[in-house]
């Protein structure tokens, strides 16, 4: 049990209304449609650690990222920031300052019409961490330096920088409010491999130096392996396996986790012949009944088709799978 977790999600669910426009529904008599992006998700993030959420498109990890930083309020359940409800925490600037976010797309995450120094200074000004112009500039300069850029880069515009450099600017902006908690939404997915290595190293250095807590969202298990202390594997809005990263990588239990690990092309296995699991990612609007993974699961039985599995704990890892519960997973 973590004493004072930085962030805790308690049975969080979130729906999006994806109904057709009102007039159209009047004519066709269609009911409202809801997309369940997040389904009963719970996790705890201890201070100073990295918790990663992994999954493919449509699994809900991006929605959780936005819920965790307070951009939306969950339809059901609670999100708690340092033992205080997130929504009330965000209403106080002193608390709101302590959380921030890094985004995936280095090209869309910086305002193309603003100079870099203004971009990085925005949180400083918004939270009045400094008011006199030379104080603000001083902070901007040291923030840029801490991410490997120079003070002179401040007068330039974003389009003058490469993808990796823009991501550094994004990190500098996120650090400008002196946060304790950072939500990182696929921060390196749009970057080349060698640039990714630079950014991941930078992020780990900063975490050590500043004692940051990360919620790290990614679809790349190898990156997650490098960054995460604990991780959760998501499928169609649910966490299907959750626990210490080492334990999960050493012995993945949920069939989907195994599928993911197996599907990743691995450098160290040149020319491997493999039998990939078939099936498509189902649409989150009409998920299959019972366990959402059952159509693609090699271990699915009747119960899986009808009943959603609850979480069972095995060796500090929580798994939502009937086969694991029934010890059928071999």
């Amino acid at each position: 049990m973590v004493e004072r977790p930085t962030l805790e999600a308690i049975a969080v669910s979130h729906f999006f209304d994806v109904s057709r426009p009102f007039l159209q529904r009047v004519f066709t008599g269609e009911p409202r449609r809801r997309l369940r992006a997040v389904d009963d998700v719970s996790f705890v993030i201890a201070p100073g650690t990295t918790f990663a959420l992994v999954g493919e498109s449509g699994c809900g990890k991006s929605t959780i990222a936005r819920l965790a930083v307070g951009l939306y309020e969950p339809s059901n359940g609670d999100i708690v920031f340092e033992n205080q409800a997130l929504s009330s925490a965000r209403a106080q600037p002193a608390m709101r300052r302590r959380m921030n976010m890094i985004f995936q797309d280095p090209y869309a995450s910086l305002n193309p019409r603003w100079r870099v120094s203004d971009i990085v200074a925005e949180p400083i000004r918004a939270f009045r961490l400094a008011t006199r112009p030379n104080e603000v500039q001083g902070r901007v300069g040291s923030l840029l330096a801490s991410v490997g850029l120079t003070v002179r880069d401040g007068i330039k515009y974003p389009h003058e920088f490469s993808g990796g450099q823009r991501q550094r600017i994004s990190i500098a902006r996120a650090l400008a409010s002196e946060p304790d908690f950072l939500v990182c939404d696929e921060p390196t997915s749009a970057l080349d491999v060698s640039v990714q290595a630079q950014i991941l190293n930078l992020m780990r250095d900063l975490q050590q130096r500043l004692g940051l807590t990360y919620l790290f969202i990614s679809h790349n298990l190898a990156v997650v392996r490098h960054m995460a202390d604990r991780l959760g594997v998501m499928y169609l809005g649910r966490i299907v396996e959750q626990g210490p990263a080492e334990a999960i990588f050493r012995r993945p239990r949920h069939p989907y986790t195994r599928l993911l690990l197996d599907a990743i092309p691995d450098l160290e296995q040149v020319g491997r012949a493999r039998t990939p699991v078939g099936g498509e990612l189902p649409s989150p609007i009409a998920p299959p009944p019972g366990c959402p993974f059952h159509p693609r699961c090699p271990l699915a039985n009747e119960r899986c088709r009808m009943e959603k599995p609850a979480h069972v704990t095995a060796d500090s890892v929580q798994v939502a799978c009937h086969a694991v519960e029934e010890a059928r997973d071999g």
Partner: peptide
């Protein structure tokens, strides 16, 4: 450098080998 900067699924290192610059 390219091969070494790719994070491995098998084990975790303290620091990925990075090629400085761009």
């Amino acid at each position: 450098g390219l091969m070494a900067s790719i994070p491995s699924l098998e084990h975790r290192v303290n620091r990925l080998r990075q090629i400085d610059g761009a």
